[in-house]
Design a protein around this nucleic acid. Structure first.
Length: 580
RNA sequence: GGAUCUAUAGUGUAGCGGUUUAUCACGUCUCCCUGUCACGGAGAAGACCGAGGGUUCGAAUCCCUCUAGAUCCGCCA
């Protein structure tokens, strides 16, 4: 080893030891007759005390990669902010492994360099202690997941990442085949079909830290490639699966953040939409939506006549709301195609606001009573023909005001399972679509509804939500071929469709399928929660930007035509990459 | 596919029609300094204000187009 110790471990008790440390120069403080160097590695920072004569021999600068030999000595003036702050190294020899150019940004935790620049020099960005911490969380997450799953009888099995493209769901990333020119593999969106096949194979309890790929537009919490804690188990009911998710997440939060998660709440999908206006409710604060249709639709206000009207009460906020606020709220609602937003204030026992004059005295009284309004409460009313649009618009405002009021506290955790989702969604043109996938098992007692009213059928699927973030989703799968047939019919899938898309799975389902179900937990989302960041890119070592582009390596890129010719592919778009 | 915001030295910012040879901080370079730890002190270099076009006597500043990034909606079975 080139070093005897890391930069994070030496303490008072080590005084007198001869050590050699390796790392990067964080800062140089040259006091003339005395030079201090902060040496940094991934474990911490140790101060080097360097004689100016020794310093002059090497003249090290920021981010040089060096080793320093010397004796551990107690500092005359300790630094209580540093774990190694009571000691320093009296350096006798410095060896420069390699010099460094001036870095394009300062490698501090509170850097304000744009993310663009940081991604271009990601290897430097990752030197920042906070990024090292994020990477550690990812590593711990993998380690403790494997530990927990193995302890609970799950077996880790890798499924392929070059698979058949199934034109269902998200857009696939395609990989051309050389041996079959013109044909393509797809990268998996999830190991979904394979894990069901594993259950048919008798694997019983499977898990995997799976790489998944989806070619869809990105978001702050969404990358084109991501990882999932993927799990499937046989001979179980819904509660069995939920208990595994709950147990695993409690274990991970305890081990990594030393947080004791409370027991997971079970919430009905319909309750989430009605009271939270959202399919991933943040239960850290109340401010539930109220349905005031019965009062407002006949209040005399024409805009709300015959509409669904819901109300959000923002307590003690009336004096803080401004014209600009209201305009922003309208903008938020517009995203959900909702325009009938109005703001009403409770002042001195009466309702005020420009729309109030349109409400009958009776309806005003009823509203105050139903919403239990107190002085200085702000009421946001939202009316729309669509119950769900109205709920979603107000749900978005609930989140915004909750945030403004500081109710979304970082150190509070409110996990829940969202259950009893509808199995199907009826599209505008009248045809049915699966809300999850065509293999999702309906709730047994709703089976008769498959023949009468498919939209009323509830599914066994479940989402795990933590503080408004969807951490995982899963479901039980259909194991009865008659039910499966019926679901395919409702979805309007012909025998040919089924055969070409997932014929191999349907075939396997004829050979004895156990009752089974499972889940996939988004590892990056979970890491974000554990790390307390709201940007996925923070917890991914080399992430893509919003356009699925990776600036550091300039990826994706054009390839020589010889390489595409052999694949039987003709590239139409010209290579214009010299501009970069 | 759509909406919003952003673009000024290496980094982050100020300036938002003319006293600007563009502000400040950090960083960089030189010199001084024996206990710093966001070291301190003195000095220096470094930007044609994202690109193109227009309005104007005059544009970093106003308008248009484009480019790049960020955030959201659609999308993500």
């Amino acid at each position: 080893m080139l070093r005897t110790n890391t930069c994070g471990e030496l303490r008072e008790k080590d005084a007198g030891k001869e050590v050699t440390l390796c790392g990067w120069v964080s800062t140089v403080r040259n006091l003339g007759a005395l030079v201090f160097i902060d040496l940094r590695d991934k474990y911490g920072i140790t101060q080097l005390n360097v004689d100016p004569k020794i310093y002059a021999l090497t003249n090290v600068r920021s981010e040089y990669c060096i080793s320093a030999k010397g004796k551990v000595v107690l500092r005359s003036e300790p630094n209580k902010d540093l774990p190694t702050g009571k000691i320093e190294i009296a350096v006798t020899e410095i060896n420069v492994f390699s010099k460094s150019e001036t870095t394009p940004f300062e490698l501090t935790d509170d850097t304000n360099a744009s993310e663009d620049t940081r991604l271009l020099y990601r290897y430097l960005d990752l030197r920042r202690p906070i990024m090292q911490k994020y990477m550690k969380i990812r590593s711990d997450l993998n380690f403790y997941t494997r530990e927990y799953m193995n302890q609970h009888g799950f077996q880790e099995i890798d499924t392929p990442t070059l698979i058949k493209s199934t034109p269902e769901g998200a857009r696939d990333y395609l990989v051309p085949s050389r041996i079959y020119p013109g044909e393509f593999y797809a990268l998996p969106q999830s190991p979904q079909l394979y894990k069901q096949l594993l259950m048919v194979s008798g694997a019983d309890r499977y898990f995997q830290l799976a790489h998944c790929y989806r070619d869809e537009d990105q978001r702050a919490d969404r990358q084109p490639e991501f990882m999932q804690i993927d799990c499937e188990m046989s001979f179980i009911d819904r509660e069995d699966v939920l208990n595994v998710i709950e147990g695993l997440l409690k274990y991970l939060f305890k081990k990594i953040d030393n947080v004791d998660l409370p027991d997971f709440y079970r919430m009905d999908y319909s309750v989430a939409i009605d009271s939270y206006g959202c399919d991933k409710p943040d239960m850290r604060f109340e401010m539930l939506l109220n349905n005031v249709t019965d009062i407002m639709s006949k209040s005399g206000f024409k805009a709300y006549e015959g509409k669904v009207v819901k109300a959000l009460v923002v307590p003690n906020y009336a004096d803080k709301v401004s014209r600009k606020n209201m305009d922003l709220d309208n903008l938020t609602a517009k995203k959900f195609k909702v325009f009938g937003v109005s703001h009403v204030k409770m002042e001195n026992g009466v309702l005020t606001g420009s729309v109030v004059k349109n409400f009958s005295a009776d309806s005003q009284e009823k509203l105050i009573k139903k919403l239990n309004l107190k002085n200085n409460d702000l009421v946001i009313l939202c009316g729309d023909a669509s119950f769900s649009n109205c709920s979603y618009a107000l749900g978005a405002l609930r989140s915004e005001y909750g945030h403004k009021l500081g109710l979304d506290k970082k150190n509070v955790y409110k996990p829940l399972f969202l259950i009893n989702w509808p199995l199907f969604e009826k599209e505008a043109d009248g045809h049915y679509e699966s809300l999850s996938n065509p293999f999702t098992r309906p709730i047994d007692e709703d089976l008769p509804l498959l023949d009468t009213d498919p939209t009323k059928v509830r599914s066994t699927s479940y989402d795990t939500i933590l503080n408004g973030v969807e951490l995982s989703s899963g479901a039980l799968r259909i194991h009865d071929s008659e039910v499966q047939k019926k679901v395919f019919e409702i979805l309007g899938l012909s025998a040919d469709d089924i055969n070409s898309r997932f014929g191999f799975l349907v075939k396997a389902l004829k050979f004895g399928v156990p009752p089974e179900g499972g889940f996939g937990i988004g590892i990056e989302r979970l890491a974000m929660e554990l790390a307390g960041t709201d940007n996925v890119r923070d917890v991914v070592a080399f992430p893509k930007n919003l356009k699925a582009y990776e600036p550091m390596s300039d990826c994706p890129s054009f390839v020589p035509t010889a390489d595409t010719d052999i694949l039987g592919i003709k590239v139409v778009k010209e290579d214009t990459s010299e501009k970069k």
